[in-house]
Simulated scan of single mutants.
Amino acid sequence: MDLFASAPALMPIPIRDGELAFLAQLPLPWPNALVLARLIAETDWREETVLVYGKRHLQPRLSAWHGDKAYRYSGLRLAPAPFTPLLDVIRQAAEQATGRRYNSVLLNYYRDGRDSMGMHSDDEPELGPEPAIASVSFGATRPFILRHKASKETLKLPLTDGSLLFMAGKLQANWMHGINKTTRPLGARINLTFRNID
Rank of each mutant, 00 (worst) to 15 (best):
residue 28 L to W: 03
residue 62 L to K: 11
residue 99 G to D: 12
residue 190 I to G: 00
residue 93 A to D: 08
residue 152 K to T: 12
residue 59 Q to G: 01
residue 146 L to D: 03
residue 78 L to K: 03
residue 89 V to M: 14
residue 77 R to D: 07
residue 125 P to I: 01
residue 70 A to P: 13
residue 158 P to C: 07
residue 79 A to K: 11
residue 66 H to F: 10
residue 51 L to E: 10
residue 121 S to W: 02
residue 144 F to R: 00
residue 97 A to Q: 07
residue 51 L to W: 00
residue 62 L to F: 11
residue 170 K to W: 04
residue 36 L to M: 11
residue 190 I to W: 00
residue 51 L to A: 07
residue 192 L to K: 02
residue 131 P to F: 08
residue 196 N to Q: 15
residue 55 K to A: 11
residue 162 G to Y: 01
residue 163 S to A: 15
residue 184 R to V: 09
residue 39 L to W: 00
residue 174 N to W: 04
residue 100 R to I: 00
residue 45 W to K: 05
residue 28 L to S: 02
residue 139 G to Q: 10
residue 140 A to G: 01
residue 68 D to G: 14
residue 75 G to R: 12
residue 180 N to K: 12
residue 31 P to W: 09
residue 186 L to Y: 04
residue 114 R to Q: 15
residue 107 L to R: 02
residue 128 G to I: 08
residue 137 S to D: 06
residue 155 L to D: 05
residue 39 L to V: 06
residue 114 R to C: 08
residue 190 I to C: 00
residue 64 A to R: 00
residue 67 G to H: 04
residue 168 A to N: 14
residue 119 M to N: 01
residue 79 A to T: 12
residue 107 L to P: 01
residue 182 T to P: 03
residue 12 P to L: 11
residue 129 P to F: 13
residue 163 S to M: 05
residue 169 G to T: 06
residue 192 L to E: 06
residue 2 D to P: 11
residue 55 K to D: 01
residue 81 A to Y: 11
residue 82 P to F: 10
residue 117 M to F: 11
residue 131 P to H: 08
residue 180 N to T: 11
residue 109 Y to N: 02
residue 126 E to W: 05
residue 90 I to D: 06
residue 56 R to V: 01
residue 27 P to G: 05
residue 10 L to E: 05
residue 150 A to Q: 14
residue 118 G to W: 01
residue 47 E to C: 14
residue 46 R to C: 09
residue 127 L to M: 11
residue 183 T to S: 14
residue 127 L to I: 11
residue 163 S to I: 03
residue 82 P to H: 09
residue 82 P to R: 09
residue 167 M to N: 10
residue 76 L to P: 02
residue 70 A to Q: 14
residue 133 I to G: 00
residue 189 R to F: 02
residue 32 N to A: 15
residue 53 Y to A: 14
residue 26 L to D: 05
residue 80 P to T: 04
residue 192 L to I: 09
residue 17 D to S: 13
residue 53 Y to I: 03
residue 180 N to M: 08
residue 45 W to F: 12
residue 95 E to A: 13
residue 160 T to Q: 14
residue 73 Y to N: 04
residue 153 E to T: 15
residue 2 D to C: 04
residue 106 L to G: 05
residue 112 D to I: 02
residue 10 L to A: 07
residue 134 A to H: 03
residue 120 H to S: 07
residue 24 A to G: 13
residue 4 F to W: 14
residue 36 L to G: 03
residue 42 E to Y: 09
residue 109 Y to L: 14
residue 111 R to F: 03
residue 148 H to K: 10
residue 87 L to R: 05
residue 55 K to N: 10
residue 149 K to E: 12
residue 14 P to G: 08
residue 159 L to F: 04
residue 42 E to N: 10
residue 178 G to Y: 05
residue 113 G to W: 00
residue 94 A to T: 09
residue 49 T to C: 09
residue 13 I to P: 05
residue 172 Q to K: 08
residue 5 A to L: 13
residue 18 G to R: 04
residue 72 R to I: 04
residue 11 M to N: 08
residue 184 R to E: 13
residue 46 R to I: 02
residue 2 D to V: 02
residue 102 Y to I: 10
residue 102 Y to C: 11
residue 144 F to L: 01
residue 193 T to V: 11
residue 108 N to A: 03
residue 114 R to I: 01
residue 19 E to A: 10
residue 81 A to H: 14
residue 121 S to N: 03
residue 44 D to T: 14
residue 16 R to H: 12
residue 63 S to I: 03
residue 110 Y to C: 10
residue 44 D to M: 06
